[in-house]
Design a protein around this nucleic acid. Structure first.
Length: 256
DNA sequence: AAGCGGAACAACCGCTCTTGC
DNA sequence: TGCAAGAGCGGTTGTTCCGCT
């Protein structure tokens, strides 16, 4: 049983792409468009795996790609998006026109990770390093406890608690960042809001705090006790990218 | 100039998800 | 409902480049 390999490895090239291969791929896609990647190599006369062709096209040959260094703005945007989405590189890439998931992933691993470490921030949790270590220990303890909970029961609870359907229910980001709003919704305070800010163990914090910069100049929740006046706009969500006043639903981040 | 080590990046691999039968 | 194919994603590896000694 099992799946047939995506290509016949014995008859495919591997390693760096040559100029000629690039030209063939570009010419074929210009003529026929992006279609069935599996059959594309043969049709285009390439001794490459379909996956390899797809990757090459998406990451390097697409005409709308923006090459060159990342700007400071892009850096910060990536950090913010990563704190919200985790390693969902494709989603992050969807918010950065002209950038690819692979490019962003590489850039994260080589530049941004170090940048955050230099700031004393754990790149995985976006919290200060010492706090992150404590969080890891706490998470490990919690995991032991969690093993007693039936997986089926959890799935059932997810299903009923989530308004999302199918694909949307798999979002795992929250497990790593318990402080993040599980619905990943960024919204201004609703004047009609009747629920307290902290409900069912969910705490909403400002974006700056989620990055581990408590009491920083950008922290908008420092003076707020949880559950304070609902008329304070900073208490219920991030002013994410200056989007205060806009409801940002996680589902909207999924771009195809 | 040569050797070495680390950084950067391109590409591959294995897995999951979606879709069609 | 189950299976297989195709597509996509994220982690990892391999190669090249560059600066330092």
């Amino acid at each position: 049983m099992g799946r047939s390999p995506c290509c016949e490895k014995a008859h495919t090239n591997k390693g760096a792409w040559t100029k000629e291969e690039d030209d063939r791929l570009i010419a074929y896609i210009r003529a026929h468009g992006e279609g069935c990647w599996r059959s594309l190599p043969k049709a285009a006369g390439l001794l490459r795996c379909g996956k390899s062709c797809r990757l090459r096209w998406i990451n390097y040959l697409r005409p709308d790609l923006k090459r060159g260094n990342f700007t400071e703005e892009e850096d910060e945007l990536i950090i913010k998006l990563h704190s919200l989405l985790g390693n969902k590189w494709s989603l992050i890439a969807g918010r950065l026109p002209g950038r690819t998931d692979n490019e962003i992933k590489n850039y994260w691993n080589t530049h941004i990770r170090r940048k955050l470490l230099n700031r004393g921030i754990d790149p995985a949790t976006h919290r200060p390093m010492n706090e992150a270590a404590a969080a890891v220990a706490a998470a490990a303890a919690a995991q032991v406890e969690a093993t007693t909970i039936s997986f089926a029961a959890v799935k059932e609870e997810e299903k009923s608690a989530s308004g999302f359907s199918g694909k949307d229910t798999k979002i795992p980001v929250q497990e790593k960042c318990p402080d993040l709003n599980l619905e990943l919704r960024i919204s201004p305070p609703s004047h009609n809001q009747t629920e307290p800010l902290k409900s069912g163990g969910r705490v909403t914090i400002c974006f700056s705090c989620s990055l581990g910069v408590q009491n920083g100049k950008e922290c908008s929740c420092r003076n707020d006790s949880v559950g304070s006046s609902s008329s304070d706009s900073s208490a219920t969500g991030y002013d994410f990218l200056g989007l205060n006043g806009v409801v940002l639903d996680y589902r909207g981040l999924e771009m195809k």
